[in-house]
């Protein structure tokens, strides 16, 4: 009589245990989509597109941090490189925007594979430091090579015509394209988190030695999620370059890496909707307090400290605890 193969002892499974997409997730995603479809008629489309790009960027980081348990402090490298590549492809090579974005995203993926392969050999704070170090190398590279345009960046990037057909110079048209890209990215992240791969990922996050002892080759999973995260960060950066018609050193600077960590923590890491809220909060602050100059950074710092002190799990994390629902 074996234990693991007990078929003779049927135990009924409570219905609420069966895995299926929780209905409230479907409702939230649908509501969010509805809201975002109406939003550009109420708020500035360019502002909304900025929120969307950063929501995707933060969600990409959250995939790695919140579900993989890996804190990258160098995600600007992927965001920024993709931004440069997309801008260059659109402006210098005259590629259509979807191809430019695709190339930029690919740049994020390739860079993610290189940096990830080296970084995952380290644990905890050393992992974060390795990612930061590589991101700084990417920054200095961007500062030195001619194609990035140095301090000026790549300016006046043409938005072009989608598939050579749809003119994207109209903000509203572009908005719906960006919405499609970002929403698609978010749904992909949701799927990754709720896949057989995602289950193993969460196990590794929770207890790495135990995952090894069950026979999982944890480094392969870590590298896989690192590349996915870098690719999605690249998608966000490339899209941003087309929206703002600009790729600049700000995109690869370490403060960008810090900002996206901040967004994720404020919204709630390890939650699906937290990074979206975090991105909205930070981008809104930056926009409305732009007149305060350097004070924006200080205000951001204050918001961060208050968030950490009041609710360590982030805004959505706290709501999830109150409502006893996974968000």
């Amino acid at each position: 009589m074996t234990v693991a193969n007990t078929e003779t002892h049927p135990v009924t499974l409570p219905a609420d245990l069966r895995i299926s997409t929780p209905r409230h997730h479907v409702v939230i995603f649908a509501g969010l989509l509805g809201l975002l479809l109406v939003a550009p008629f109420v708020l500035y489309p360019v502002f909304l597109m900025k929120v969307l790009c950063f929501a995707l960027f933060a969600s990409a980081l959250n995939l790695l941090l919140g579900y993989g348990g890996l804190l990258s402090f160098g995600h600007a490298a992927f965001f920024g490189s993709a931004s440069y590549v997309a801008a260059h492809a659109a402006k210098v090579w005259g590629l259509t925007p979807e191809l430019a974005i695709l190339l930029g995203t690919g740049a994020g993926a390739v860079l993610g594979l290189g940096i990830g392969a080296l970084a995952i050999r380290r644990q905890g704070i050393y992992f974060a430091m390795v990612t930061l170090a590589f991101a700084q190398m990417v920054f200095f590279f961007a500062l030195q090579v001619p194609f990035t345009g140095g301090e000026d960046g790549i300016q006046a990037v043409p938005r072009g015509k989608l598939f050579g057909l749809v003119d994207l110079s109209n903000d509203l048209t572009l908005y719906f394209v960006v919405l499609l890209i970002v929403f698609g990215g978010l749904l992909l992240i949701y799927r990754i988190v709720h896949s057989p791969f995602g289950q193993v990922l969460k196990a590794i996050r929770d207890n790495e030695p135990r995952s090894v002892s069950l026979g999982y080759k944890v480094n392969r999973y870590k590298l896989a999620v690192f590349v996915m995260s870098a690719t999605l960060a690249g998608l966000a950066g490339a899209t941003k370059a087309i929206v703002f018609q600009l790729a600049s050193l700000t995109d690869v600077y370490w403060t960008m890496s810090g900002e996206v960590v901040l967004m994720t923590l404020i919204g709630g890491m390890g939650t699906i909707f937290g990074p979206l809220v975090g991105a909205a909060v930070i981008v809104t602050m930056q926009n409305y307090f732009a007149g305060f100059g350097a004070w924006v950074t200080i205000l951001q710092g204050i918001v961060f400290v208050v968030t950490v002190l009041l609710f360590r799990e982030g805004i959505i994390g706290v709501i999830a605890r109150w409502t006893k629902k996974a968000l």
Binding site: T21, R191, P196, Q199, V200, Y221
Partner: peptide, 16 residues
């Protein structure tokens, strides 16, 4: 389990 594109419903068969 590298299939990140598949729903975790694929794991339901292990629940029993």
């Amino acid at each position: 389990s590298f299939d990140f594109w598949r729903s975790e419903k694929a794991l339901n068969r292990f629940d029993g």
